[in-house]
Simulated scan of single mutants.
Amino acid sequence: MDIQQASALTSSAVTAAIPLMFAGAGELVTEKSGVLNLGVEGMMLMGAVTGYPVTAITGNPWLGVVAAIGAGLAMSMLFAFLTLTMLANQVATGLSLTIFGIGLSAYVGKPYTSAAVRATIDTWTIPGLSKIPVLGPAFFSLTPLDYLAFLMFAVIWWFLYRTRAGL
Rank of each mutant, 00 (worst) to 15 (best):
Thr85Glu: 15
Leu73Ala: 03
Ala88Glu: 10
Ala115Cys: 08
Thr85Met: 15
Gly128Ser: 02
Gln90Met: 12
Ala119Ser: 08
Thr125Phe: 07
Leu63Thr: 02
Ser114Tyr: 00
Pro61Arg: 08
Ala116Ser: 08
Gly136Gln: 02
Arg118Leu: 11
Leu95Thr: 11
Leu135Arg: 03
Asp122Lys: 13
Gly109His: 01
Ala138Gly: 04
Phe79Thr: 03
Leu63Trp: 01
Phe140Met: 03
Ile121Tyr: 08
Ile126Tyr: 06
Gly101Ala: 01
Ala68Tyr: 03
Gly72Phe: 03
Ser105Lys: 04
Leu95Asp: 04
Thr93Gly: 13
Met77Trp: 13
Arg118Pro: 02
Ile132Val: 00
Ala106Glu: 13
Ser96Arg: 03
Pro137His: 10
Trp124Ala: 08
Arg118Ile: 07
Asp122Asn: 13
Gly128Asn: 01
Gly70Ile: 07
Ile126Gln: 04
Gly103Arg: 09
Leu84His: 14
Gly109Val: 01
Ala71Arg: 04
Ile69Lys: 05
Thr125Lys: 12
Leu97Ile: 07
Phe100Gly: 10
Met75Ile: 15
Val66Phe: 12
Leu63Ile: 03
Val134Pro: 06
Asp122Ile: 08
Leu63Ala: 07
Val117Gln: 01
Leu87Asn: 14
Val65Met: 09
Ile121Cys: 07
Thr93Gln: 11
Ala106Trp: 13
Leu87Trp: 06
Leu95Glu: 05
Ala88Trp: 12
Leu87Asp: 13
Pro133Phe: 14
Gly94Phe: 06
Gly136Lys: 02
Val117Glu: 00
Val65Leu: 14
Thr83Ile: 05
Leu84Tyr: 09
Asp122His: 10
